[in-house]
């Protein structure tokens, strides 16, 4: 991948697995991915595709039961197997996380001010006043009115959308280089979703923070991402620029996902099409291509795992099918 000479974040054959032997469960399987400075990379997948495990792996937060393999390099520094002191100096300071559910991501027992400032006071050695000033500044950045009053609030005193904006401000406190977004809009009302996406775009425009956004919602990504990676069953199945991926997807799964989005430029069908079958069960993945049981283009060769291959335009695909994007799209109708 030659997007930029020195990627900020470089993942090589990253694996996250649980259990051992025949019970081994690979949440993330031999994943290669780069994140360049200032870019926004979207990662799309259903539940069980391993996308959240991928995010947690970047912070070493998968928990004691998980085993990491492969390599994660942040500015050349290896994060897989790094000491807890090394990880602590990265977490929140260089790589910050915005969690999925703002209801539960904030500690209900502590004031907003405490939760916003504790990271900055630690990492940047800010005093109490300086940290509070910085917190108020960031609350203003995420468009919260009367920031200094909000700082005295407890999470339950704020609305859902406001809480999500607080978690975004919290992630930005130490001016990180990489922002990890874990389904940032999933738990919110539809109207609030649009506001939060708008806000994230504005924040990115202002700070230039490199962003890795994980979601199952291709629609939410469309306005955010420069490039989009599609994961299925713990593996990368397609990676392309947002433009290419939305207009000419090459993987049948991606094409299916896109087809199931409501389109504003076309009349709404009586029933939105869906991809049949169940999302993959990581404990019991099919042999070969994990998507084959649900794929309209399934073929005998799909019994072997497809390797990731690159097209001249940089488009990456893991599928045996050799046809054109329009043929792939045609297979679903």
């Amino acid at each position: 991948m030659a997007d930029s000479p020195a990627p900020l974040l470089q993942l090589r054959s990253l694996g996250v697995s649980y259990g051992r032997g025949i019970e081994e469960l690979r949440a993330v399987d031999t994943l290669d991915l780069d994140l360049a400075g200032r870019e926004c990379l979207g990662v799309v997948g259903e539940s069980g595709s391993g996308k959240t495990q991928l995010l947690l792996a970047l912070l070493g937060l998968n928990g004691p039961a998980a085993r990491l393999s492969g390599s994660i390099r942040y500015r050349g520094m290896e994060l897989v197997g790094a000491s807890s002191a090394q990880l602590a100096s990265i977490r929140g300071r260089r790589i910050a996380l915005v969690s999925q559910d703002p209801m539960s991501a904030l500690n209900p027992y502590l004031r907003i001010a405490t939760q916003l400032t504790e990271g900055a006071r630690r990492h940047l050695q800010l005093g109490r006043r300086a940290a509070l000033a910085r917190a108020a500044e960031l609350l203003a950045l995420v468009q919260i009115d009367a920031p200094s009053e909000r700082l005295r609030c407890y999470p339950h005193e704020l609305s859902g959308g406001m809480r999500q904006r607080v978690t975004i401000a919290m992630a930005l406190m130490c001016d990180p280089e990489i922002l990890l977004l874990d389904e940032p809009t999933t738990a919110l009302d539809v109207t609030v979703q649009a506001h939060v996406l708008e806000l994230l775009r504005a924040v990115r425009a202002r700070t230039g923070v490199a962003t890795l956004m994980v979601t199952h919602d291709l629609g939410a990504l469309a306005s955010m991402a420069n490039r989009v990676a599609v994961m299925y069953g713990g593996r990368l199945v397609e990676l392309a620029s947002a433009q290419q991926l939305y207009t000419a997807p090459r993987h049948p799964y991606t094409a299916g996902l896109l087809r199931s989005l409501p389109r504003l430029d076309q009349p709404l069908p009586a029933r939105l099409p869906v991809i049949g079958g169940q999302p993959p069960d990581l404990a019991d993945l099919p042999k070969g291509c994990a998507f084959s049981p649900r794929c309209p283009l399934v073929h005998a060769r799909c019994a072997s795992s497809p390797q990731l291959r690159a097209f001249p335009d940089g488009h990456l695909l893991a599928c045996h099918y050799e046809g054109t994007p329009s043929q792939v799209a045609g297979a679903w109708t």
Binding site: L59, L61, R91, G92, A96, A105, Y109, Q115, E118, R122
Partner: peptide, 24 residues
């Protein structure tokens, strides 16, 4: 709790997480 993960993601040391976030 997810907010414990949030606290970990901030790079706080374990004793701060336990005493400030998990004790109550």
């Amino acid at each position: 709790q997810p907010y414990i993960r949030t606290a970990r993601a901030k790079g706080l040391p374990t004793h701060v997480i336990v005493l400030r976030h998990a004790l109550r």
